[in-house]
C-alpha cells in the first residue's frame, strides 16, 4: 500500500511536470472529466452484465462439471481399488489355507509311506535272518556229521594200524578189542 501511495505521488508529480507541454492541460486528468463518466458506467454495466451471465450460465458450470466428474471418477476408482484389494486379500487367504491343507495331507501320505516301507523292510530282514540262520544250522550239522564220520574213520584206521604194528613188533597175536580200547583212550587223550 505504501508502495502504491509513493507511486501515485510520483506519478502525479511527473504528470504535473509534463502537463504544461501537453494539450490535456486545460482538461486536467482525463479521469476527472465528468462528461466521460456516463458512457463508461453504461458500458461497464453492459459488459460486466454480459460477462456475469456468460460465466454463471456457460463457463463456470462447464468447468465445475469437469472438476466434479474428475472427482467422482477418482473417488470411484479409489473405491474400486479398495474392493479389489479386499478381494485380493481374500484370495490370498484362501490360497494360504489351501496350501496349508495340501502340505498337511502330503505330510500324512509321506508318513504312511515311510511307515509301511519301514515295516516291510523289517519283515524282509527278519525273514532273511531266519533263512540264513536255518542255512547256518544246516551247514553246521553237515560239518559236525562229516567230522564225526572222519573221526570214526580215523579210529578204525588207527586201531588197524596199531593192531598190525603191535603184531609185527611183538610177534604175537594181540586182542583186537584191547587195541581198539587203547586207541580210543589215546584219541580221547589227544582230543
Amino acid at each position: 500500500m505504501v508502495m502504491g501511495t509513493v507511486r501515485t505521488a510520483l506519478a502525479f508529480a511527473t504528470g504535473a511536470m509534463a502537463l504544461p507541454a501537453g494539450p490535456a492541460l486545460a482538461a486536467g486528468l482525463p479521469q476527472l472529466d465528468p462528461s466521460t463518466y456516463a458512457p463508461q458506467v453504461i458500458w461497464l454495466a453492459i459488459t460486466f452484465g454480459v460477462l456475469y451471465v456468460l460465466m454463471a450460465r456457460v463457463a463456470l458450470p462447464r468447468i465445475g462439471h469437469v472438476l466434479e466428474e474428475r472427482r467422482h471418477k477418482i473417488d470411484r476408482n479409489l473405491k474400486m481399488a479398495e474392493t479389489l484389494k479386499v478381494d485380493a486379500e481374500d484370495a490370498a487367504e484362501a490360497y494360504e489355507g489351501a496350501m496349508a491343507d495340501a502340505r498337511a495331507r502330503a505330510g500324512n501320505v509321506l508318513g504312511d509311506v515311510r511307515e509301511r516301507a519301514a515295516k516291510e523292510t523289517a519283515e524282509r530282514q527278519a525273514e532273511l535272518g531266519a533263512r540264513l540262520h536255518a542255512d547256518i544250522q544246516e551247514a553246521e550239522a553237515g560239518i559236525a556229521e562229516a567230522r564225526d564220520k572222519a573221526v570214526a574213520g580215523i579210529r578204525d584206521l588207527a586201531a588197524e594200524v596199531a593192531h598190525s604194528a603191535a603184531e609185527k613188533l611183538a610177534g604175537e597175536t594181540v586182542d583186537a578189542g584191547a587195541v581198539r580200547s587203547a586207541v580210543d583212550a589215546v584219541l580221547k587223550e589227544r582230543g
Binding site: P39, W43, I46, T47, L51, V58, A59
Partner: peptide, 20 residues
Amino acid sequence: VDASFTNSGLFMVVAVTAIT
C-alpha cells in the same frame, strides 16, 4: 444520456470476449 461507445467500452468488450 451520453452512452457512446468509447475506447474504454471497446476494451471492456475485448476483455469480456477474451475471458469467455
